[in-house]
């Protein structure tokens, strides 16, 4: 039971990170119907920016928690802003010229952009992993086990991740449901031509979608960096594929679905590693994707699609 609880906490943490990335996939898919393959790499870029900010600020665990949190907010904002610029540029260079073009073309440019981002970071920052000493330390013991066994702990970092994700998700849902931007976004999702005719600036709306997705991916990047303490130029691929899996599992196009899917994928992966085998945890995540797509193509919270004849 204690083991289960511990895995649950770990799974929720991991799932929050996946969920944040998944939102970017789901929004872009919803609005222009393409898989933004480079999104995972935007997450990686965000993570690198955060890493360099932390090193530049000289943040270490010895600083006070209050100061640390304040500094991390600064890091977060910088990472979000710069990752957004990356997201915007990728859309502008690789996707916008192909708007309304053949379906495969943006997919190929997306894969191309993914390769470009990975290799750009590899060339400029080196291929070696970047280990970062833990910054946010400490935690709470929820259940004290016997002789240190069967203890259930939640680290401060895990609390920070889960709380931040929750706050961002709430703010984000409000943004989409209440603001003008959210309305334009939903309009473009339904019918971008009609939206354009009614005066919605479709290009700008799509750009903003990419910017928002990139900003959230940067948040996930910072969380990933702080949680695992090690990043390299390749982390974007696997995290990206799993986050996409999460988006599909939740029902692509649905924001709560992306979050739910992220949490589920995180939980599945953690429990699989905890109870079965760590080696095959990716197989578990991918198998879930395959099974969901075959038996429930519209995902958990997605709209079912009716075949039009």
């Amino acid at each position: 039971m204690e083991y289960f609880l511990q895995q649950l906490i770990n799974g929720l943490t991991l799932g929050s990170i996946y969920g944040l990335i998944a939102i970017g996939y789901t929004m872009v898919y919803g609005i222009i119907g393409m898989i933004n393959f480079a999104h995972g790499d935007i997450f990686m870029v965000g993570s690198f920016i955060a890493m360099m900010m932390i090193v530049a600020l000289g943040l270490t665990a010895s600083a006070g928690l209050a100061f640390l949190l304040l500094a991390l907010v600064l890091v977060l904002i910088v990472a979000m802003v710069f990752a957004s610029v990356w997201g915007w540029t990728v859309e502008r260079l690789a996707y916008r010229p192909l708007r309304g073009s053949f379906r495969l073309a943006p997919l190929i440019t997306a894969i191309g952009m993914s390769i470009v981002l990975q290799n750009f970071v590899q060339v400029t920052q080196g291929a070696r992993v970047k280990p970062l000493p833990p910054i946010v330390t400490g935690g709470f013991t929820l259940v004290t086990g016997v002789n240190g066994h069967n203890a259930v702990q939640i680290s401060t970092m895990q609390i920070v991740i889960i709380v931040t994700t929750f706050l961002l998700m709430t703010g984000f849902s409000l943004l989409i449901s209440k603001t003008r931007l959210g309305r334009s976004q939903r309009a473009c999702e339904q019918d971008s031509k009609m939206a354009a005719l009614l005066g919605v600036n479709v290009d700008r709306t799509i750009s903003l979608t990419f910017v928002m997705g990139a900003a959230l991916a940067a948040v996930a990047g910072l969380m990933f960096l702080l949680y695992y303490g090690v990043i390299d130029f390749y982390i974007g691929f696997l995290a990206g594929v799993k986050a996409f899996t999460a988006a599909v599992l939740g029902g692509i196009g649905s924001l709560p679905g992306a979050m739910l899917g992220g949490l589920l994928i995180g939980l599945i992966e953690t429990f699989w590693s905890g109870y079965f085998s760590v080696e095959y945890k990716d197989v578990a995540a991918f198998s879930i994707l395959v099974i969901v797509l075959i038996f429930m193509p519209s995902g958990l919270l997605g709209r079912p699609e009716v075949e039009k004849v």
Binding site: Y29, D282, V283, L293
Partner: peptide, 22 residues
């Protein structure tokens, strides 16, 4: 997987490729 739509087919084949590799 063959009754899946284009993009979904793409992602499932990607998953299969990775499963085999893992």
């Amino acid at each position: 997987v063959l009754r899946l739509r284009g993009d979904y087919l793409a992602i499932v084949t990607l998953a299969f490729g990775e499963i085999i590799r893992v």
